[in-house]
Each structure stands twice: as C-alpha cells, then as structure tokens.
Amino acid sequence: MSTPAIRADGLGKRFGRVLAVDGLSLTVEPGEVFGFLGPNGAGKSTTIRMLLGLVRPSAGAALIFGDPAGDVRRAHRHLAYVPADVALWPTLTGAEVLELLAEVGPGTDRGYRNELVRRFELDVNRPARTYSTGNRQKVSLVAAFATRAPLLVLDEPTSGLDPLMEREFRACVTEARDRGQAVFLSSHQLAEVEAVCDRVGILRAGRLVEIAGVAELRRLRQTVVEASFRDDVPSLVDVPGVLAVESLDRNRVRFTLSGPPGPALNALSTADPTAVVMREPSLAEIFLSYYGSGR
C-alpha cells in the first residue's frame, strides 16, 4: 500500500482551557479529494494549521507522505496551501507574490500558472494592497494549483469568490485530481464538498463525528419544505420521506423531506396549496438534526 498523503493520529490541540481539537484521526490517500466539513469554530483551521506545522499539536501526530508535519522542510515539499484568510505583502504585486511563492516553493508549472491567471481573471500587475478578499484568494489559489505538489491543502478557499470563479475552482480541483494530486478541502458548504469530493469528514466542536463517502453523505441531504394552503393543511402522517412535521399555523406547514419527493407532493396536492417553497437545509440544521445541538 502506498504512503498516505495525510495521516493524523489522535491529533489534539488545547488553547489554555479550550480544547479546540480532540483526538482527531484520519487518513487521506494520494489522489483523493477529501472534504473537511464543519460549522464555523469547529476546529477546521486549527486542524489544518497542525497539519502544516504552523501550530504545534498538544496531543497526537500527523504525517504528510510519511514525513512528520513538524519537519516542514521535508513535509512542505509535498504540499501547497491556501489559507482561509489570505494576507499578502501589500507592496508586492500579484505577479511578484506568485514569483516568490514559485521560487521558494516545491516546484511550479509556470505555463499552467499563466493559464490559471487568465482563467481566474486575475490582474497580476496590481499591488496586493489594492486587492479585494476574493482577489487575494485567487492569488493564493493560482499559486497552489500551479504547483506540482502531490497534496493541496485548501482552507475554505471559495469564501470570497463569486459563482463564476467558484465554478472555475471546482474545475481546477477536478484537474488536480486527474493529475493525481490529493486535495484536502475544508469547507462549510455542503454543495461544494458534494460536487468535488470523494470522501468527507465532518468535524463538530473539535471532534471528527463522521467520515463517509459522498454517496453516504447524500443521506444527510434533505430538503426543507414549507407549504401554504387556501384551507386546512392535509394529513402528512405516514407519507414516505416526510420527517419532522411542524405546523406553523392553521394553513401553513413545514417539514423535512428525504428521498424522492413524489409521495409528499401527492399528499400536498390532495388539499389546495397556494405556495410550496423547497430549500436546502444549512449545514447547521443538518448537524442539529443528526447530532443534536449539545457538546
């Protein structure tokens, strides 16, 4: 068996009295796209910073392609990183930042980098101080995707990107996987993770609560339905896929739907619906429904 791209064993980090990450163990294989999901403050960034040796773990250990994460001269030859909140030297232009990162970094495909600059529509001749959050993120993304490092560690990399650029980002992740690069993608967007990842780990309050394939993740996929009726709400008892029915008032109802929507829609149409609104639940709502709200 090949050496895993990431191997974390009982990783833990304590800041004073706060336990930010607790007993985290996971393995990411080479060439795999691993989604790292969790709400804000769950410990995603702390975990990533431990994997990068930027923060020292209080417990456990992590290996990057077999090299200890703390030995950055070796470990960082295998990876490229996009931080959650990209800060750049304000006086350097985008092109200069990319040059510095390419020269000092683990090896860059400059042709591909120029293509990425075009695709992300990045003006590299502006000093970084004039960049918006999204543009700084683009610089970091271009630098990371252009490396030949076998592992890309991306910490909420699309939080500042517009939908068009987000699409470009997903294409880049797919291209990276096709080149055999592993991707460790931290996110709080279920849709993004579902679109590009092979496997997903879910972090909550510093603990890894679930590691599953994306197919299994789909059972977490639910739809929240709110329906209004001219008269009374029809009965939804024993309708397949309908869960957590909540009566909002005499002629409005809210429930969650999992699986195919046919039976529920049939049940709704037995009365006289005036409006039906369906939306995806937020990750927080999924966490609440699956894991409860407490620690």
């Binding site: 960082h76 930042v97 000092v104």
Partner: peptide, 20 residues
C-alpha cells in the same frame, strides 16, 4: 508584525523552516 498580520503564513507553508 508580518506574522501577526498573517503575511508570513504563505511563506511558512513552503519548505522553509522557522529557524531559517
């Protein structure tokens, strides 16, 4: 100050040790 403002992070994510 560069470290506190996170400007150092991209550099230290490269194969650059703290000692260096």
């Amino acid at each position: 100050a560069d470290e506190a403002a996170r400007r150092t992070t991209p550099l230290l994510a490269l194969p650059v040790s703290r000692a260096r």
